[in-house]
Simulated scan of single mutants.
Amino acid sequence: MLLRPIVSQLVIDPPAQLDDRMNIPSEKEVDDLLVACIGQMAVTAGSDLLWKPLNHEVLMQTRSEKLRPKILGLRIVKYFVENLKEEYLVFIAETIPFLGELLEDVELSVKSLAQEILREMESLSGESLRQYL
């Protein structure tokens, strides 16, 4: 499947010592581009049949032992929620268990981002989703 190699890039650590070289984007710039690229891929696809495997692959990255893939996965889910809006709600049942796990993460940045996504999903759905966590 084409999606797995694309999303698997989230777990690859950037090369060390690139900051001193010109014309090489920073880690933050690369991360921002990854989020935008994968997020826009979903928006452009325009079909929940294509969104489902992409959403699943992204959510699986949030179970990584490393912080970077967790944050990137959450940022992409946030992009999905913000850009697909009500169309993303078909994935509530799949997404909620992942958010529940992430709300208990030891990293504050992971918890905070998971809370933001949950609030946005609650706003879109018009109901509290905390009972499903």
Rank of each mutant, 00 (worst) to 15 (best):
S112K: 04
L133D: 01
N55A: 13
L99F: 06
L34Y: 05
I12W: 13
L10V: 05
D105P: 02
V106C: 09
W51E: 03
L108D: 12
L72A: 03
D32E: 15
M41C: 12
A36K: 10
E107G: 06
L18D: 09
E57Q: 06
V90P: 01
W51L: 06
V106A: 11
K66Q: 15
A42M: 04
E27Y: 10
S8R: 08
V110F: 02
A16F: 10
E94W: 04
A114G: 00
E87S: 14
A45H: 08
P25I: 07
S128F: 10
R63N: 10
G126H: 03
V11L: 12
E107C: 10
P69Y: 09
L103R: 01
V58P: 00
L54M: 08
I92D: 00
M41T: 14
K28F: 15
E57R: 03
I96W: 02
V77F: 00
T95F: 01
L49G: 04
I12Q: 13
L89R: 02
L50C: 07
I71V: 15
Q9E: 13
M41L: 14
S8W: 06
M22A: 14
E29F: 11
E57C: 06
V90K: 01
A114K: 00
D32N: 11
L2Q: 10
T44S: 12
Q9D: 14
P97M: 09
V30I: 14
E82D: 13
L89Q: 01
A36C: 08
S47Q: 11
R21N: 11
D32W: 11
M121R: 02
L84M: 07
D13C: 10
L103F: 02
E116M: 06
P97S: 10
L99W: 01
N23V: 14
A16K: 15
M41H: 11
M22S: 15
K78L: 08
V43Q: 09
S26L: 08
V110M: 03
I12K: 13
Q131T: 12
L133S: 02
V7F: 05
V35W: 03
V90F: 04
F91C: 02
D48R: 09
E107H: 09
I92E: 01
P69I: 08
A42S: 05
I76R: 01
T95N: 02
L124V: 04
W51G: 04
V106H: 12
I24T: 09
D13W: 07
V30S: 06
K52G: 00
S26N: 09
E86I: 15
W51C: 03
N55D: 07
W51T: 04
I92S: 00
C37F: 15
V43L: 13
L129D: 03
G100I: 06
L118M: 08
G126W: 05
W51V: 05
D19S: 15
L133C: 03
N83S: 11
